[in-house]
């Protein structure tokens, strides 16, 4: 057994080493991943609404899986790779990910507060299932609260994005930007943690 003294995190492809301790730049054992992302790293694209794992707004990818960053302790994410909404666009050109572009094109947001979480849940889905049915998208987003009711436009945007991503994958040349593409392969039978 041990107590962590430092935490290594890869966030949007960039490595971070954080000390565990009491200073505001450190990670306290009780700090959530959402807190660390927002307040230590300044990545405020990840939103916190209910802070109890019930609304999905804080969804990020942890080693490729959609998880709720409000309900994970940062000290327990040591060694993990995290992708936030800030990591979706192309890091070189700043060009929008096809998913983001589809959300723009379909006005698949209203107040926008839940949009980062919805984008990340959708990203996890499309990484695993590039051709989801509408029902599968609905199921993947079941834990994402949107109070303005943008659900219908989101479902259209996701189908559109999935189509664009499949097309892009068929084209030669640079593939679709995948900031979490280096996530380790998951072994369904045994888990990886």
């Amino acid at each position: 057994m041990d107590e962590a003294t430092q935490i290594r995190l890869t966030v949007n492809g960039r490595g971070h080493t954080l000390a565990v301790g009491p200073r505001s730049a450190d990670v306290a054992p009780s700090d959530t991943l959402a807190h660390t992302l927002r307040h230590v790293m300044g990545l405020t694209g990840t939103k916190v609404s209910c802070d109890r794992g019930a609304c999905g707004m804080c969804t990020v990818l942890l080693d490729g899986r959609a998880v709720l960053s409000c309900s994970l302790l940062t000290v327990e994410c040591d060694g993990s790779s995290v992708t936030t909404v800030e990591g979706l666009a192309d890091p070189e050109t700043g060009g929008l990910h096809p998913l983001q572009q589809a959300f723009v094109d379909h006005t698949a947001f209203q107040c926008g507060f839940c949009t980062p979480g919805i984008l990340m849940s959708t990203k996890a889905l499309l990484d695993e299932n590039p051709e989801p049915t509408v029902g599968e998208v609905q199921e993947a987003l079941a834990g994402n609260h949107c109070r303005c009711i943008t659900h219908y436009h989101v479902l259209e945007a996701v189908q559109d994005a999935a189509g664009r991503m499949r097309e892009a994958a068929l084209e030669p040349g640079p593939t679709v930007s995948e900031s979490s593409s280096n996530a380790p392969e998951r072994d369904v039978a045994t888990g990886t943690r």
């Binding site: 999905g56 998880v67 709720l68 199921e139």
Partner: peptide, 9 residues
Amino acid sequence: VASPQIRNV
């Protein structure tokens, strides 16, 4: 149980 994000952890 719950949502995909919860089932993932």
